[in-house]
Amino acid sequence: MNYYAYFVAVSIMLLGVAGIATSRNLVHTVVCLSVAQSGTYVLLVAVGFQYGGVAPIFGAQVGKTTPVVDPVVQALTLTDIVVSAAVTSMLLALVIQIAKRHQAIDPDRLGRLEG
């Protein structure tokens, strides 16, 4: 049994979460969210791994019966990366707006509710 890859995935995610909770700068918070999401890439690819499996690109060398790693989770990882990029850009734009309106990007100094 080998849980090493899963351990790495969960560690990356928890590091990101810890970074978000202790962040003193909103840009740092957004980057930490990206780090936490990177943990899911490792987890997805680890789930689809097979010892001796090759990349799922078929051709002369790789046939129907050759063991390949799971292409489904790789496609999901691609989706994950695109969504992560979209979320990061959206959040960074929000941080710029917050910086303009409050002259502060420390989450602890943005406690007051507006409305």
């Binding site: 690109i57 078929f58 292409p71």
Partner: peptide, 22 residues
């Protein structure tokens, strides 16, 4: 899922399985 996806990829003669899935 890999086995099902590889069969479907072959059914549509796509070399890159990830592209075929996506």
């Amino acid at each position: 899922y890999r086995d099902a996806a590889v069969a479907a990829t072959y059914a549509h003669d796509t070399a890159n399985a990830v592209s075929s899935i996506n």
